[in-house]
Nucleic acid binder design. Structure first.
Lengths: 216, 216
DNA sequence: CCGGTTTGACTGAATCGCCAGTAAGCCGCG
DNA sequence: CGCGGCTTACTGGCGATTCAGTCAAACCGG
């Protein structure tokens, strides 16, 4: 895609490419470190160590720690939203598509830590407008996607729902809250039960019977 | 309740009382400061200043900052749970009682910051077992209360619900998620709309019509 | 193609403000 | 007295940011 000159590959090449690569590497490392230490107790030195790089380099690529963290959230969200959009574009009966979205939302297993990042980000977003904005984007994308699938189901006559947007808001909120609970106390609320709750609520929102959804 | 000795009042008296009072004062100040700065960027010096007290005094009453914060969360929760239990104990038709609980849950106004504390605590709870435990207590109390009111309604024949506990879990989660959203982006989701969502969902869970609840 | 020059990624160590926690002692009340 | 609540003055160290310098790759005039 780049390099109309001699060297004909995008993986390795000009210094700009190298810098981009390093930047991406740092963002990825930042994500890993934040996942296990939390945003507020992550030190730039930790990220440096995780990349086998000097502390100074971090500040060569990112002016401040905040900038690094924000950039990390930004790219994480972007890929997440992209995958979500793709998922929504999929085909099949509306029930299946909706169920797929629900399952994508919910952590895959007890060791899936992706939500740790968002919980941390919620707290950060309380005071940082940039983070707040990023989170709003993510939520909007989710609600929009759920709404879209519901609307498709209504159009095809599979679903009955007089307020797809409201239904999506309710479902999303319920999942947010429940996943936070699951992330904090996995022993109190199993993933299975969580998914079951999601399906029950979803079925109700779109006016079909619970049995229309997968899973017993 | 204390002082079976000479001085016959609980507000002012023995040195122990004075110490207790100071402790409470510090906890209250801690709460205020944390609300506006967040747990992780609250310094003990801030709390000292907010109480017009020297920095050293904090450590006279609380060994570490963590202990102070934890104690603060603890007492906040205790009073919250107490008020909740009292609310549940109230009388009247089950719909009214349920609605009262819902309204108690939701921030009173855009300036009610109580939820900021919990969002912060969620993040802290990701790594601190003590906080995690405190949060679990709070959630359990909420779910229990909602369940209890629903069950009462079922017993009196006002409600239909074959799984009060599950219904309470779903309602609670939805409110958690939605309130986080409201707290972070009040301009995107109004309190009015939030309450309406709560009533719609609640009505559905207990098998009554939305119009059975107050508010148009 | 070559030596000199520039550029840009990167290092390692120093700086410096911040902040939890400590130590020593003051003071008023019982 | 003497104890308990309180203050002031410190410290120890952490941790973001800065900076002077290294090194290799790209560039360029001849």
């Amino acid at each position: 895609m780049r390099s109309a000159d001699g060297t004909a590959e995008g993986t390795r090449g000009s210094r700009a490419d190298q810098a981009d690569q390093r930047r991406a590497e740092l963002l990825e490392a930042a994500r890993r470190v934040v996942l296990e230490r939390g945003i507020s107790s992550t030190r730039v030195a930790d990220i440096a160590k995780a990349t086998n790089v000097s502390g100074g380099l971090i500040h060569y690529h990112f002016a401040t720690k905040d900038e690094l963290i924000t950039a990390m959230l930004r790219t994480t969200i972007d890929t997440e939203v992209a995958r979500l959009k793709e998922l929504v574009r999929g085909s099949g009966p509306a029930v299946d598509r909706l169920d797929r979205v629900l399952r994508f939302y919910i952590p895959r297993s007890r060791t899936d830590q992706s939500w740790i990042l968002w919980i941390d980000a919620f707290a950060a977003g309380l005071r940082e407008a940039v983070v707040q904005h990023i989170l709003l984007e993510l939520e909007t994308a989710w609600i929009g996607s759920v709404e879209q699938v519901i609307q498709a189901g209504v159009d095809s006559g599979e679903f009955t729902c007089d307020d797809p947007h409201g239904a999506a808001e309710r479902l999303d909120s319920m999942l947010d809250g429940m996943i936070i609970r699951y992330t904090l106390h996995p022993s109190v609320l199993s993933r299975k039960r969580l998914l079951e709750h999601a399906r029950i609520a979803a079925a109700r929102e779109v006016g079909v019977d619970r049995s229309a959804f997968p899973g017993s």
